[in-house]
Computed example of a mutant assay.
Amino acid sequence: MNDCLFFGSNQFPKLIKNEPNEITKPIQFKFENENENENENEKQIKQISSGYYSTIFLFKNGKAIEYLFNSKQNPEKIQIEENIQKVTVGYDNEAILTIERNVFAKGYYVNSKNPNKFINISSLIEDKNDRIIQDVVSGYDSIYLLTSNQNAYGIGYNFDGQLGFDSKTLPKTEKPILMMKNVSKIFSGNTSYSVFLLNSNQELFGCGWNNYGQVGLGESIKEKKIQKLTKIQNIPKGKIIDIQCGYDYSIMLIENENENENPKRKLYSCGYWQYNGLGKNEDTYEFTEIKSSLFENDDNILDFSVGNVHTLILTSNSKLIGFGHNFSGQLATGDTNDQKFQFKLNFLN
Rank of each mutant, 00 (worst) to 15 (best):
A95G: 02
D3V: 15
S138K: 10
L348Q: 03
I313V: 15
E66I: 06
A152H: 07
L145Q: 11
L302S: 03
P115I: 08
L278S: 02
L124M: 12
E282H: 15
S50A: 11
V103E: 02
Q330S: 03
G271Y: 10
S194G: 12
V215S: 11
A332D: 00
E34R: 09
N18A: 11
H310R: 04
L58P: 10
K237Y: 00
I27A: 01
N21V: 04
L145A: 07
E126H: 07
L229F: 14
K117C: 03
F347P: 05
Y272R: 14
Q233F: 01
N326P: 05
S9C: 09
S184E: 11
M180N: 09
S305R: 15
E34S: 12
W273D: 07
Y285L: 04
L178E: 02
D303H: 09
L217I: 11
N326Q: 07
L314Y: 01
K266M: 07
N37A: 13
P13Q: 10
F12A: 13
N211S: 15
E203N: 14
F29T: 04
Y144S: 07
N190C: 04
E36H: 10
V309W: 10
N70G: 06
F118W: 02
L348N: 08
E289Q: 14
E257T: 15
A152G: 08
I16C: 05
N349T: 14
F347G: 04
D135T: 05
I125S: 02
S54Q: 13
L58F: 03
G62V: 13
Q150T: 06
N308G: 12
I78Y: 03
L253T: 04
E40L: 15
E259L: 12
C207G: 04
N61K: 14
G139E: 09
P26R: 09
S148E: 13
N116G: 13
K117A: 06
G51E: 08
Q47I: 04
K225L: 05
Q233I: 08
E100A: 12
N10P: 08
I23M: 04
M1Y: 04
K239S: 10
D303I: 02
V137W: 04
G8A: 04
N33H: 13
E296G: 00
Q227G: 07
N234T: 08
G164T: 10
I48A: 02
N74Y: 09
K14I: 03
K264E: 05
T284N: 10
N337Q: 13
Y249W: 03
I65F: 14
F12S: 09
N149C: 06
L97E: 00
